[in-house]
Design a protein around this nucleic acid. Structure first.
Lengths: 216, 216
DNA sequence: ACGGTAACCGGAGGGCCACCCCGGTTGTCG
DNA sequence: CGACAACCGGGGTGGCCCTCCGGTTACCGT
């Protein structure tokens, strides 16, 4: 084995992390494809992790996930060197859906309403999939951009477009940033996600934060 | 040992949890005083826990606290059957200070400003003492009122007075509750408490939530 | 002053977890 | 079809939370 510190560390993230179905593509976008069994394990881990996390929250036991997926814990750690990496992969689909929703809302005639609708959707997803909010906020802190904070970057980009339009229409305070809004939504989700009726309470708190504490 | 399930479970909370120095007092407010060594250990654990939690956050290792206090982990668990109980004791002083501040702000001529000032103070304390916010929110979920949710009850009562005055002056939306406001503040603190400059960011987010996203 | 008693202490151990090492296995490519 | 490298996972390490139990010590009555 060459001992140079390649750009991909020993437990390298899968160079081909399973885009669900994309037959049309240039022949070799990424030369070193995964071995078949490796990919199979990877996908099973992601599937099981989604189920377990949905039920037990984001700090579910990694060993339990590995056991339930029928692989050794070492395999899980090889595929996902950190818990955050696993969460990013699991929530990738949800985040992509939210980004798509942002795109759909862009041509809305009322930019403020579009932004607020989207923030509500983000909040709803965050409380529904326990740990998504924490994952997004954690991604905001991760300095290393190469290692997995793609979810955070994606959703910030999507929100930026909506916020820019709303700001241009003077429908939001000019000093507000997308990161702040997402932090607010994530914080509310994180605080309410383990309450009996978290979704409703989260939506109420979000409305309060958007409209302000004072009346009119 | 009698096997009946007495109202106080085996690891009973200290009946005399160390009011720092109060020589003048009726002879027997609480008959079963703690033994001297027990109290000494109790106080040392609280002191050390305050320091460790301030540095490492609310989920610091209990064994580490016990080690650093020079007691066995069993002693810590006997004095504080749950982590929440320890946090409550550690943060009691801070919470009392916040309650006192609420009292001081009650006669303020501007009820809305008084409420907002107080919420800011709560937020500042929550980010400064890592874990206080989480502790307050956790207290809100604890169903058992006898076992330690006194901090939450105290601060809700203090906030209720301020909120009632503000509501009477039509300075806040009538449907807002104290619990919601505290949840909002705690959530923001929780989300920002481990950022490089959390205090400033928390204050900005709190302002945003109070004034609303839309301008004017 | 002193002994008896019960409250209290903390070392040791069990169960669970994240993470890593290394010999055996298996997919892949010439 | 055979060799090689990538990959697997059992087992070990260290840490955590929590509990049991034999030894210790403060307290109180005499």
């Amino acid at each position: 084995m060459p001992e140079d510190a390649a750009p991909t560390p020993p437990g390298r993230p899968p160079t081909h992390p399973a885009p669900p179905a994309r037959p049309q593509r240039q022949p070799q976008p990424q030369p070193p494809a995964m071995r078949a069994d490796a990919r199979r394990n990877h996908d099973r881990i992601v599937a099981v992790a989604g189920a377990v996390i949905a039920e037990h929250g984001a700090e579910a036991s990694l060993e339990q996930i590995a056991r339930h997926a029928g692989v050794g814990s070492a395999t899980l750690h090889r595929h996902f060197p950190t818990r955050q990496a696993l969460l990013e992969t699991v929530f990738k689909g949800r985040v992509e859906a939210l980004c798509a929703k942002a795109q759909d809302l862009l041509p809305d005639p009322d930019p403020a309403a579009a932004l607020i609708t989207w923030l509500r959707a983000v909040g709803a997803h965050a409380v529904a999939n326990r740990g998504l909010g924490a994952s997004l906020m954690q991604g905001a802190r991760d300095a290393d951009p190469a290692l997995g904070s793609t979810c955070h970057a994606m959703i910030v980009d999507a929100g930026d477009a909506l916020l820019a339009r709303a700001r241009q229409a003077h429908a939001v305070r000019p000093e507000v940033t997308t990161t702040q809004l997402l932090k607010l939504v994530s914080a509310i989700a994180l605080a309410t996600e383990r309450e009996p009726d978290g979704a409703a309470e989260a939506d109420r708190l979000l409305s309060l934060a958007i409209d302000g504490v004072r009346p009119r």
